[in-house]
Write a protein that binds this DNA or RNA. Structure first.
Lengths: 210, 210
DNA sequence: TGCTTTCGCTACGACCCGTAGCGTAATACC
DNA sequence: GGTATTACGCTACGGGTCGTAGCGAAAGCA
Protein backbone atom coordinates (compact mmCIF):
# COMPACT_ATOMS: atom_id res chain seq x y z
CA UNK A 1 0.00 0.00 0.00
CA UNK A 2 1.52 3.31 -1.04
CA UNK A 3 -1.57 4.82 0.56
CA UNK A 4 -2.44 8.41 1.18
CA UNK A 5 -0.33 11.39 0.24
CA UNK A 6 2.36 12.68 2.58
CA UNK A 7 1.30 15.14 5.26
CA UNK A 8 2.54 18.43 3.83
CA UNK A 9 1.22 17.82 0.31
CA UNK A 10 -0.96 20.21 -1.62
CA UNK A 11 -3.87 19.28 -3.85
CA UNK A 12 -6.63 16.74 -3.64
CA UNK A 13 -5.62 13.79 -1.46
CA UNK A 14 -6.01 10.24 -2.63
CA UNK A 15 -9.16 8.53 -1.52
CA UNK A 16 -8.50 5.97 1.21
CA UNK A 17 -11.89 4.47 0.46
CA UNK A 18 -10.73 3.80 -3.09
CA UNK A 19 -7.76 1.84 -1.79
CA UNK A 20 -10.00 -0.37 0.31
CA UNK A 21 -12.52 -0.81 -2.48
CA UNK A 22 -9.82 -1.78 -4.97
CA UNK A 23 -8.24 -4.34 -2.67
CA UNK A 24 -11.62 -5.83 -1.83
CA UNK A 25 -12.52 -5.93 -5.52
CA UNK A 26 -9.22 -7.65 -6.24
CA UNK A 27 -10.02 -10.40 -3.74
CA UNK A 28 -13.48 -10.78 -5.19
CA UNK A 29 -12.03 -11.07 -8.67
CA UNK A 30 -9.55 -13.67 -7.45
CA UNK A 31 -12.45 -15.72 -6.13
CA UNK A 32 -14.50 -15.41 -9.30
CA UNK A 33 -11.80 -15.54 -11.95
CA UNK A 34 -8.57 -16.77 -10.39
CA UNK A 35 -5.19 -15.26 -11.11
CA UNK A 36 -4.80 -15.72 -14.83
CA UNK A 37 -8.21 -14.40 -15.87
CA UNK A 38 -8.09 -11.48 -13.49
CA UNK A 39 -7.75 -8.19 -15.39
CA UNK A 40 -7.10 -4.77 -13.98
CA UNK A 41 -9.94 -3.35 -16.00
CA UNK A 42 -12.33 -5.75 -14.36
CA UNK A 43 -11.02 -4.93 -10.90
CA UNK A 44 -11.48 -1.24 -11.55
CA UNK A 45 -15.07 -1.79 -12.66
CA UNK A 46 -15.82 -3.90 -9.59
CA UNK A 47 -14.34 -1.24 -7.33
CA UNK A 48 -16.34 1.52 -9.02
CA UNK A 49 -13.11 3.24 -9.97
CA UNK A 50 -11.52 4.30 -13.23
CA UNK A 51 -8.78 2.09 -14.59
CA UNK A 52 -6.38 5.01 -14.61
CA UNK A 53 -6.86 5.51 -10.88
CA UNK A 54 -5.76 1.96 -10.30
CA UNK A 55 -2.63 2.39 -12.38
CA UNK A 56 -1.70 5.54 -10.47
CA UNK A 57 -1.41 3.51 -7.26
CA UNK A 58 -0.11 0.13 -8.30
CA UNK A 59 2.54 -0.69 -10.87
CA UNK A 60 0.72 -3.78 -12.07
CA UNK A 61 -1.17 -6.93 -11.34
CA UNK A 62 1.56 -8.48 -9.20
CA UNK A 63 1.87 -5.64 -6.73
CA UNK A 64 -1.89 -5.24 -6.47
CA UNK A 65 -2.50 -8.88 -5.67
CA UNK A 66 0.29 -8.97 -3.10
CA UNK A 67 -1.34 -6.12 -1.21
CA UNK A 68 -4.80 -7.65 -1.54
CA UNK A 69 -3.65 -11.00 -0.23
CA UNK A 70 -1.45 -9.51 2.49
CA UNK A 71 -4.50 -8.12 4.25
CA UNK A 72 -5.75 -11.66 4.74
CA UNK A 73 -2.81 -12.39 6.99
CA UNK A 74 -3.54 -9.48 9.31
CA UNK A 75 -5.66 -11.72 11.48
CA UNK A 76 -2.81 -14.09 12.39
CA UNK A 77 -2.28 -14.20 16.16
CA UNK A 78 -0.31 -16.32 18.62
CA UNK A 79 -2.71 -17.35 21.36
CA UNK A 80 -1.23 -18.75 24.56
CA UNK A 81 -2.56 -22.26 24.77
CA UNK A 82 -0.27 -23.41 27.55
CA UNK A 83 2.18 -25.65 25.71
CA UNK A 84 4.42 -25.46 22.67
CA UNK A 85 2.49 -28.20 20.93
CA UNK A 86 -0.82 -26.48 21.50
CA UNK A 87 0.59 -23.13 20.41
CA UNK A 88 1.88 -24.63 17.19
CA UNK A 89 -1.42 -26.32 16.49
CA UNK A 90 -3.26 -23.08 17.06
CA UNK A 91 -1.13 -21.04 14.71
CA UNK A 92 -1.03 -23.70 12.03
CA UNK A 93 -4.80 -24.01 12.11
CA UNK A 94 -5.13 -20.26 11.64
CA UNK A 95 -2.70 -20.36 8.74
CA UNK A 96 -4.56 -23.26 7.22
CA UNK A 97 -7.81 -21.39 7.61
CA UNK A 98 -6.47 -18.50 5.56
CA UNK A 99 -5.06 -20.77 2.87
CA UNK A 100 -8.41 -22.50 2.62
CA UNK A 101 -9.93 -19.32 1.21
CA UNK A 102 -9.91 -19.27 -2.59
CA UNK A 103 -8.63 -15.71 -2.87
CA UNK A 104 -5.55 -16.71 -0.88
CA UNK A 105 -4.99 -19.97 -2.70
CA UNK A 106 -4.99 -18.65 -6.24
CA UNK A 107 -3.38 -15.34 -5.41
CA UNK A 108 -0.54 -16.25 -3.12
CA UNK A 109 1.02 -19.01 -5.19
CA UNK A 110 0.82 -16.92 -8.34
CA UNK A 111 2.68 -13.96 -6.93
CA UNK A 112 5.28 -16.26 -5.42
CA UNK A 113 5.76 -17.76 -8.86
CA UNK A 114 6.17 -14.31 -10.33
CA UNK A 115 8.59 -13.33 -7.60
CA UNK A 116 11.09 -15.89 -8.83
CA UNK A 117 11.89 -13.45 -11.63
CA UNK A 118 11.29 -10.15 -9.83
CA UNK A 119 13.41 -9.27 -6.83
CA UNK A 120 11.40 -6.21 -5.93
CA UNK A 121 8.23 -8.28 -5.88
CA UNK A 122 9.87 -10.90 -3.67
CA UNK A 123 10.92 -8.19 -1.25
CA UNK A 124 7.37 -6.83 -1.22
CA UNK A 125 6.02 -10.30 -0.41
CA UNK A 126 8.61 -10.79 2.28
CA UNK A 127 7.83 -7.51 3.96
CA UNK A 128 4.05 -7.70 3.85
CA UNK A 129 3.33 -11.42 4.14
CA UNK A 130 6.26 -13.64 5.09
CA UNK A 131 7.72 -11.58 7.89
CA UNK A 132 4.32 -11.37 9.50
CA UNK A 133 4.27 -15.16 9.71
CA UNK A 134 7.85 -15.48 10.83
CA UNK A 135 7.26 -13.24 13.82
CA UNK A 136 4.87 -15.84 15.17
CA UNK A 137 7.55 -18.49 14.96
CA UNK A 138 9.96 -16.25 16.83
CA UNK A 139 7.40 -15.43 19.51
CA UNK A 140 6.41 -19.06 19.90
CA UNK A 141 10.00 -20.13 20.24
CA UNK A 142 10.72 -17.51 22.89
CA UNK A 143 7.64 -18.54 24.83
CA UNK A 144 8.61 -22.21 24.68
CA UNK A 145 12.09 -21.38 25.93
CA UNK A 146 10.59 -19.45 28.81
CA UNK A 147 8.50 -22.51 29.65
CA UNK A 148 11.57 -24.74 29.44
CA UNK A 149 10.15 -26.73 26.54
CA UNK A 150 12.99 -25.73 24.28
CA UNK A 151 16.65 -25.21 25.26
CA UNK A 152 17.81 -21.57 25.29
CA UNK A 153 19.80 -20.55 22.28
CA UNK A 154 23.51 -20.88 22.77
CA UNK A 155 24.73 -19.36 19.52
CA UNK A 156 22.85 -16.48 17.90
CA UNK A 157 23.60 -17.46 14.32
CA UNK A 158 22.68 -21.02 15.05
CA UNK A 159 19.39 -19.87 16.55
CA UNK A 160 18.53 -17.73 13.53
CA UNK A 161 19.20 -20.66 11.21
CA UNK A 162 16.97 -22.91 13.27
CA UNK A 163 14.15 -20.39 13.21
CA UNK A 164 14.39 -20.14 9.44
CA UNK A 165 14.36 -23.91 9.17
CA UNK A 166 11.31 -24.30 11.37
CA UNK A 167 9.55 -21.57 9.49
CA UNK A 168 10.12 -23.26 6.15
CA UNK A 169 8.99 -26.57 7.60
CA UNK A 170 5.79 -25.24 9.09
CA UNK A 171 4.70 -22.89 6.33
CA UNK A 172 5.90 -25.22 3.61
CA UNK A 173 4.04 -28.23 4.94
CA UNK A 174 0.76 -26.36 5.27
CA UNK A 175 1.07 -24.77 1.85
CA UNK A 176 1.96 -28.07 0.21
CA UNK A 177 -0.84 -29.92 1.97
CA UNK A 178 -3.38 -27.29 0.98
CA UNK A 179 -2.34 -26.40 -2.54
CA UNK A 180 -0.44 -29.33 -3.98
CA UNK A 181 -2.05 -32.28 -2.26
CA UNK A 182 -5.30 -30.32 -2.22
CA UNK A 183 -6.38 -31.86 1.07
CA UNK A 184 -7.61 -29.88 4.07
CA UNK A 185 -5.13 -29.14 6.83
CA UNK A 186 -7.70 -30.04 9.46
CA UNK A 187 -7.26 -30.67 13.17
CA UNK A 188 -6.29 -34.28 12.71
CA UNK A 189 -3.61 -33.46 10.18
CA UNK A 190 -2.29 -30.56 12.23
CA UNK A 191 -2.10 -32.80 15.26
CA UNK A 192 -0.07 -35.41 13.43
CA UNK A 193 2.15 -32.74 11.91
CA UNK A 194 2.91 -31.16 15.26
CA UNK A 195 3.76 -34.53 16.73
CA UNK A 196 6.30 -35.26 14.02
CA UNK A 197 7.73 -31.76 14.17
CA UNK A 198 8.32 -31.95 17.91
CA UNK A 199 9.13 -35.62 18.44
CA UNK A 200 10.53 -36.70 15.10
CA UNK A 201 9.60 -39.31 12.61
CA UNK A 202 11.07 -42.41 14.19
CA UNK A 203 9.51 -41.73 17.57
CA UNK A 204 6.22 -40.60 16.12
CA UNK A 205 5.88 -43.77 14.11
CA UNK A 206 6.32 -45.89 17.20
CA UNK A 207 3.75 -44.13 19.32
CA UNK A 208 0.12 -44.22 18.23
CA UNK A 209 -1.58 -40.81 18.13
CA UNK A 210 -3.38 -39.37 21.13
CA UNK B 1 2.09 -35.81 -23.31
CA UNK B 2 -0.72 -37.00 -25.58
CA UNK B 3 2.15 -37.99 -27.86
CA UNK B 4 2.08 -40.03 -31.01
CA UNK B 5 -1.02 -41.36 -32.67
CA UNK B 6 -2.51 -44.72 -31.65
CA UNK B 7 -1.16 -47.81 -33.36
CA UNK B 8 -3.89 -48.57 -35.88
CA UNK B 9 -4.37 -45.00 -37.05
CA UNK B 10 -4.27 -43.94 -40.67
CA UNK B 11 -2.69 -40.79 -42.01
CA UNK B 12 0.50 -38.94 -41.25
CA UNK B 13 1.65 -39.55 -37.68
CA UNK B 14 2.52 -36.73 -35.35
CA UNK B 15 6.18 -35.87 -35.21
CA UNK B 16 7.78 -37.04 -31.98
CA UNK B 17 10.63 -34.65 -32.65
CA UNK B 18 8.17 -31.78 -32.62
CA UNK B 19 6.99 -32.82 -29.15
CA UNK B 20 10.53 -32.76 -27.82
CA UNK B 21 11.34 -29.48 -29.55
CA UNK B 22 8.22 -27.80 -28.18
CA UNK B 23 8.85 -28.93 -24.61
CA UNK B 24 12.47 -27.85 -24.79
CA UNK B 25 11.43 -24.51 -26.25
CA UNK B 26 8.91 -24.10 -23.44
CA UNK B 27 11.62 -24.57 -20.84
CA UNK B 28 13.87 -22.13 -22.66
CA UNK B 29 11.07 -19.59 -22.75
CA UNK B 30 10.44 -20.10 -19.04
CA UNK B 31 14.08 -19.29 -18.38
CA UNK B 32 14.11 -16.20 -20.59
CA UNK B 33 10.66 -14.81 -19.94
CA UNK B 34 9.16 -16.49 -16.89
CA UNK B 35 5.58 -17.68 -16.72
CA UNK B 36 3.59 -14.53 -17.25
CA UNK B 37 5.46 -13.26 -20.30
CA UNK B 38 5.63 -16.65 -21.95
CA UNK B 39 3.42 -16.79 -25.03
CA UNK B 40 2.53 -19.81 -27.10
CA UNK B 41 3.40 -17.98 -30.27
CA UNK B 42 6.91 -17.41 -29.00
CA UNK B 43 7.28 -21.05 -27.97
CA UNK B 44 6.18 -22.17 -31.42
CA UNK B 45 8.74 -19.90 -33.05
CA UNK B 46 11.53 -21.15 -30.76
CA UNK B 47 10.59 -24.74 -31.55
CA UNK B 48 10.52 -24.08 -35.29
CA UNK B 49 6.90 -25.13 -35.40
CA UNK B 50 3.68 -23.49 -36.48
CA UNK B 51 1.45 -22.14 -33.72
CA UNK B 52 -1.40 -24.30 -34.95
CA UNK B 53 0.70 -27.43 -34.45
CA UNK B 54 1.17 -26.51 -30.83
CA UNK B 55 -2.55 -25.98 -30.30
CA UNK B 56 -3.35 -29.36 -31.84
CA UNK B 57 -1.39 -31.09 -29.05
CA UNK B 58 -1.94 -29.00 -25.97
CA UNK B 59 -5.09 -27.30 -24.80
CA UNK B 60 -3.24 -24.26 -23.52
CA UNK B 61 -0.36 -22.75 -21.64
CA UNK B 62 -1.07 -24.59 -18.41
CA UNK B 63 -0.99 -28.08 -19.84
CA UNK B 64 2.07 -27.33 -21.93
CA UNK B 65 4.09 -26.05 -18.99
CA UNK B 66 3.08 -28.97 -16.81
CA UNK B 67 4.48 -31.39 -19.36
CA UNK B 68 7.60 -29.31 -19.90
CA UNK B 69 8.33 -29.12 -16.18
CA UNK B 70 7.42 -32.75 -15.53
CA UNK B 71 10.34 -33.92 -17.63
CA UNK B 72 12.69 -32.23 -15.19
CA UNK B 73 11.61 -34.65 -12.49
CA UNK B 74 12.44 -37.72 -14.54
CA UNK B 75 15.92 -37.78 -13.10
CA UNK B 76 14.78 -38.26 -9.50
CA UNK B 77 16.21 -41.47 -8.04
CA UNK B 78 16.44 -43.10 -4.61
CA UNK B 79 20.06 -44.12 -4.13
CA UNK B 80 20.82 -46.52 -1.29
CA UNK B 81 23.10 -44.59 1.01
CA UNK B 82 22.92 -47.05 3.87
CA UNK B 83 20.71 -45.22 6.36
CA UNK B 84 17.34 -43.50 6.40
CA UNK B 85 18.90 -40.15 7.20
CA UNK B 86 21.38 -40.44 4.35
CA UNK B 87 18.67 -41.58 1.96
CA UNK B 88 16.49 -38.60 2.85
CA UNK B 89 19.37 -36.19 2.44
CA UNK B 90 20.17 -37.66 -0.96
CA UNK B 91 16.65 -37.35 -2.30
CA UNK B 92 16.08 -33.91 -0.87
CA UNK B 93 19.30 -32.66 -2.41
CA UNK B 94 18.19 -33.97 -5.79
CA UNK B 95 14.81 -32.30 -5.39
CA UNK B 96 16.49 -29.06 -4.36
CA UNK B 97 18.76 -29.28 -7.38
CA UNK B 98 15.77 -29.40 -9.70
CA UNK B 99 14.02 -26.54 -7.95
CA UNK B 100 17.17 -24.46 -8.25
CA UNK B 101 16.73 -24.36 -12.00
CA UNK B 102 14.84 -21.27 -13.17
CA UNK B 103 12.56 -23.15 -15.56
CA UNK B 104 11.32 -25.25 -12.63
CA UNK B 105 10.99 -22.35 -10.24
CA UNK B 106 8.86 -20.09 -12.37
CA UNK B 107 6.92 -22.86 -14.07
CA UNK B 108 6.01 -25.18 -11.25
CA UNK B 109 4.57 -22.64 -8.85
CA UNK B 110 2.57 -20.99 -11.58
CA UNK B 111 0.81 -24.14 -12.69
CA UNK B 112 0.14 -25.09 -9.08
CA UNK B 113 -1.46 -21.69 -8.63
CA UNK B 114 -3.60 -22.26 -11.70
CA UNK B 115 -4.55 -25.73 -10.51
CA UNK B 116 -6.38 -24.26 -7.55
CA UNK B 117 -9.15 -23.39 -10.01
CA UNK B 118 -8.82 -26.27 -12.47
CA UNK B 119 -9.34 -29.82 -11.26
CA UNK B 120 -8.20 -31.40 -14.51
CA UNK B 121 -4.97 -29.48 -14.33
CA UNK B 122 -4.42 -30.52 -10.73
CA UNK B 123 -4.91 -34.14 -11.72
CA UNK B 124 -2.43 -33.72 -14.53
CA UNK B 125 0.13 -32.29 -12.12
CA UNK B 126 -0.50 -35.08 -9.66
CA UNK B 127 -0.07 -37.80 -12.23
CA UNK B 128 3.02 -36.43 -13.96
CA UNK B 129 4.89 -34.67 -11.16
CA UNK B 130 3.64 -35.28 -7.64
CA UNK B 131 3.18 -39.04 -7.79
CA UNK B 132 6.70 -39.41 -9.13
CA UNK B 133 7.99 -37.73 -5.99
CA UNK B 134 5.72 -39.60 -3.65
CA UNK B 135 6.96 -42.96 -4.89
CA UNK B 136 10.37 -42.08 -3.52
CA UNK B 137 8.89 -41.48 -0.10
CA UNK B 138 7.15 -44.84 -0.22
CA UNK B 139 10.29 -46.65 -1.33
CA UNK B 140 12.42 -44.92 1.28
CA UNK B 141 9.96 -45.80 4.01
CA UNK B 142 9.87 -49.44 2.98
CA UNK B 143 13.64 -49.59 2.90
CA UNK B 144 13.90 -48.01 6.35
CA UNK B 145 11.40 -50.51 7.73
CA UNK B 146 13.44 -53.35 6.26
CA UNK B 147 16.49 -51.91 8.00
CA UNK B 148 14.56 -51.64 11.25
CA UNK B 149 14.94 -47.85 11.38
CA UNK B 150 11.18 -47.37 11.26
CA UNK B 151 8.52 -49.53 12.89
CA UNK B 152 6.47 -51.65 10.47
CA UNK B 153 3.07 -50.27 9.70
CA UNK B 154 0.38 -51.67 11.93
CA UNK B 155 -2.67 -50.09 10.32
CA UNK B 156 -2.80 -49.57 6.56
CA UNK B 157 -4.86 -46.39 6.66
CA UNK B 158 -2.67 -44.97 9.38
CA UNK B 159 0.40 -45.75 7.29
CA UNK B 160 -1.02 -44.04 4.21
CA UNK B 161 -1.83 -40.96 6.25
CA UNK B 162 1.70 -40.86 7.61
CA UNK B 163 3.22 -41.15 4.17
CA UNK B 164 1.09 -38.26 2.96
CA UNK B 165 2.15 -36.21 5.96
CA UNK B 166 5.84 -36.90 5.44
CA UNK B 167 5.51 -36.12 1.78
CA UNK B 168 3.96 -32.74 2.46
CA UNK B 169 6.60 -31.98 5.07
CA UNK B 170 9.53 -32.87 2.84
CA UNK B 171 8.37 -31.40 -0.42
CA UNK B 172 6.77 -28.41 1.26
CA UNK B 173 9.87 -27.48 3.23
CA UNK B 174 12.14 -27.64 0.19
CA UNK B 175 9.74 -25.68 -1.97
CA UNK B 176 9.22 -23.03 0.69
CA UNK B 177 12.93 -22.72 1.36
CA UNK B 178 13.73 -22.40 -2.32
CA UNK B 179 10.89 -20.25 -3.62
CA UNK B 180 9.54 -18.25 -0.70
CA UNK B 181 12.60 -17.76 1.47
CA UNK B 182 14.67 -17.72 -1.73
CA UNK B 183 17.61 -19.34 -0.01
CA UNK B 184 19.46 -22.37 -1.35
CA UNK B 185 18.57 -25.77 0.08
CA UNK B 186 22.22 -26.72 0.33
CA UNK B 187 23.86 -29.60 2.17
CA UNK B 188 23.97 -27.79 5.47
CA UNK B 189 20.29 -26.93 5.36
CA UNK B 190 19.31 -30.41 4.22
CA UNK B 191 21.33 -31.91 7.05
CA UNK B 192 19.57 -29.76 9.64
CA UNK B 193 16.20 -30.48 8.08
CA UNK B 194 16.72 -34.22 8.13
CA UNK B 195 17.79 -34.10 11.75
CA UNK B 196 14.60 -32.28 12.78
CA UNK B 197 12.42 -34.54 10.65
CA UNK B 198 13.82 -37.69 12.20
CA UNK B 199 14.53 -36.63 15.75
CA UNK B 200 12.11 -33.80 16.34
CA UNK B 201 12.49 -30.21 17.32
CA UNK B 202 13.02 -30.48 21.06
CA UNK B 203 15.73 -33.11 20.71
CA UNK B 204 17.35 -31.42 17.76
CA UNK B 205 17.62 -28.17 19.65
CA UNK B 206 19.38 -29.87 22.55
CA UNK B 207 22.01 -31.54 20.44
CA UNK B 208 24.44 -29.35 18.54
CA UNK B 209 24.81 -30.25 14.83
CA UNK B 210 27.40 -32.65 13.50
C1' DT C 1 -10.36 32.53 -4.25
C1' DG C 2 -6.56 30.45 -6.72
C1' DC C 3 -3.19 26.21 -6.90
C1' DT C 4 -2.38 21.70 -6.97
C1' DT C 5 -3.39 17.06 -7.33
C1' DT C 6 -6.64 13.41 -8.06
C1' DC C 7 -10.54 11.52 -10.43
C1' DG C 8 -13.54 9.71 -14.22
C1' DC C 9 -13.88 9.21 -18.88
C1' DT C 10 -12.60 8.26 -23.66
C1' DA C 11 -9.59 6.88 -27.03
C1' DC C 12 -5.57 4.76 -28.81
C1' DG C 13 -1.74 1.51 -30.76
C1' DA C 14 0.27 -2.67 -29.47
C1' DC C 15 0.23 -7.26 -28.31
C1' DC C 16 -1.53 -11.93 -27.69
C1' DC C 17 -5.23 -15.12 -28.05
C1' DG C 18 -7.40 -19.07 -30.29
C1' DT C 19 -9.43 -20.47 -34.69
C1' DA C 20 -10.41 -21.00 -39.65
C1' DG C 21 -9.00 -21.92 -44.17
C1' DC C 22 -5.90 -23.53 -47.49
C1' DG C 23 -2.36 -26.05 -49.97
C1' DT C 24 1.25 -29.36 -49.02
C1' DA C 25 3.73 -33.33 -46.83
C1' DA C 26 3.89 -37.85 -44.82
C1' DT C 27 2.19 -42.12 -43.64
C1' DA C 28 -1.27 -46.41 -43.55
C1' DC C 29 -4.22 -49.24 -46.11
C1' DC C 30 -5.50 -51.73 -50.36
C1' DG D 1 1.83 -47.80 -56.63
C1' DG D 2 -2.37 -45.47 -55.84
C1' DT D 3 -5.50 -43.45 -52.55
C1' DA D 4 -7.50 -42.04 -48.33
C1' DT D 5 -6.39 -39.85 -44.16
C1' DT D 6 -4.14 -37.18 -41.04
C1' DA D 7 -0.49 -33.73 -39.71
C1' DC D 8 1.91 -29.67 -40.99
C1' DG D 9 3.14 -24.71 -42.22
C1' DC D 10 1.33 -20.51 -43.37
C1' DT D 11 -1.74 -16.55 -43.43
C1' DA D 12 -5.38 -13.98 -41.78
C1' DC D 13 -8.89 -12.64 -38.67
C1' DG D 14 -12.08 -10.81 -34.69
C1' DG D 15 -11.77 -10.26 -29.92
C1' DG D 16 -9.78 -9.09 -25.73
C1' DT D 17 -6.35 -6.90 -22.61
C1' DC D 18 -2.62 -3.91 -21.94
C1' DG D 19 -0.71 0.53 -20.38
C1' DT D 20 -0.83 5.40 -21.61
C1' DA D 21 -2.34 10.02 -23.08
C1' DG D 22 -5.37 13.77 -22.95
C1' DC D 23 -9.17 16.17 -21.22
C1' DG D 24 -12.48 18.60 -18.07
C1' DA D 25 -14.30 18.33 -13.48
C1' DA D 26 -13.85 17.66 -8.48
C1' DA D 27 -11.67 18.14 -4.00
C1' DG D 28 -8.74 19.73 -0.68
C1' DC D 29 -4.82 23.29 0.81
C1' DA D 30 -2.96 28.13 1.41
Amino acid sequence: MQSSSPAGRAGRPRSAAADAAILAATRAALIDLGWSRLTLGDVATRAGVAKTTLYRRWAGKNELVVDAVAELFDELRLPDRGSLAADIEGVVLQFAGILARPEARSGLMAVIAESTRDDALRERIRASIVDRQKRLILAGRARAQARGELPPESDAGEAARTVDLIFDMVAGAVVHRTLVSAEPADEEWVHDFTRVLLSGLAVAGAYPPG
